[in-house]
Amino acid sequence: MYEDRTQDVIVTEMLKNFGKDVRTDENSLAYNACVKTASELEDAYGDIMDIYDNMLPDTQDLSHLIAYAAERGITYHEETAPIVCGKFKQDIEIGEVFTCNDYTYTVEELISGYDYRLVCETPGTEANANLGELTPQDYVEDYQGGEITEILVPGTDDEDEEMFRERVMQSFKSTAFGGNKADYRLFIDALEGVGGCKPIRRDKESNWIYVWIVSEEKKAASSELVSKVQTVIDPEQNHGEGDGMAPMCHNVLIKSALTQSIEVKAIIEFDTGYSAETSETQIIEAVEKYFSSLRDAWESNELNDTIVRTARTEAAILNVEGVKDISVQLDGKDENVSLTYEYIPMLGGVTIE
């Protein structure tokens, strides 16, 4: 990016800004001042290049890539040492050190009898084929001999940097999905056009998991939106095959939330100077705002009923300027309206008397 921003280039650019009456030849005052500044600027451009290269995983050096991957839950596979079985003819103390050929091993734990688990001090694959006689590094009283008979866990080399980079890049092409309620909600709510959802576990008598959704406007979802979400989650042509985001064996049906239209009848006593004609628009807006708040809470309400309350409707209207007293009926009754979890309330009109 800034490969051409070398000291010589920067010095040349700086010296061009001096007038003709100023000496700019080598060892002149102007030249020496510019050289020192240009050297610092070249280093600064180099630092900027390092920062730029290490911003994204496709160009990061290994140390930055490891730190970046850790934030995504991806671990770099560092080299590991071989673990071997040492077969002795006597009891050996844990922590005792032995050599075999050119490699050193430490006794880690007893397996059984006189067989012990030893770990090589040399990490990597270099000692994976090393078998043979074990010689104690320090004096072992009445040592009767021992040997490495088996490689229990082969050592591994550091993961290839580019293979690790590929693993990190592949993580952007797939999304972990456990299939629990929170996973469904988090993923579906993030889809364009969706304003909320309710995943419902299947009944014992059913093979279907239902997910009810609403639009971004907190209204019934269109057939196009339902179809779009269905295809992303569990395509209709092969339910339960895991071709969408839903895990295999999850037969998912996406359904639009149902709506129930509720008519509001308001018997209002107005203050002097106010009437139904002057306040109707504000009253309708106040009631609609209350209904909208119920729709906003629909998702978090989960399987609980949504209650449209006469008292809350009256309180909304009472906040309108000019309303002195109020009595409300919902769908012609002096009682609350209860909607089951799949329904959202819609205002069916306001009649003012």
Rank of each mutant, 00 (worst) to 15 (best):
D138V: 04
C34M: 14
F187V: 14
T24Y: 02
C120Y: 05
T6R: 12
I188L: 10
K36V: 13
V168Y: 06
I352V: 11
I213M: 10
K204A: 15
P154L: 07
T99I: 11
F164C: 03
K324H: 04
E42Q: 13
E269W: 00
V153H: 02
E159Q: 15
V107H: 09
K333S: 08
L347A: 08
F164K: 00
E166C: 01
E79R: 08
L152R: 01
A276D: 14
E217L: 13
L15E: 02
S171W: 02
T80N: 02
V214P: 00
N336W: 03
E285N: 14
M55N: 09
V107A: 12
E147K: 13
V168N: 08
E109S: 15
A286W: 09
E224G: 05
I262D: 05
D334A: 13
K265Y: 10
Y45L: 08
I74S: 01
D157C: 02
L118D: 06
H239D: 01
E285H: 05
I262W: 04
A30T: 13
V229D: 02
N336Y: 07
N101Q: 13
Q282L: 10
W212D: 13
D47P: 00
V320N: 07
Y45Q: 02
R117M: 12
A316E: 08
I51T: 07
V194I: 09
H250C: 14
D21R: 02
S112L: 06
D61N: 15
D331C: 09
E216D: 15
K20Y: 03
E126A: 13
A316L: 04
K16S: 11
T125K: 13
A190S: 15
A70D: 14
G113H: 01
V214H: 01
T135S: 07
Y143S: 04
S39P: 00
T278N: 11
E236A: 12
D47K: 12
V140C: 11
E342A: 10
S275H: 05
Y139P: 04
L191A: 05
F18P: 05
A266H: 03
K289F: 04
I188W: 07
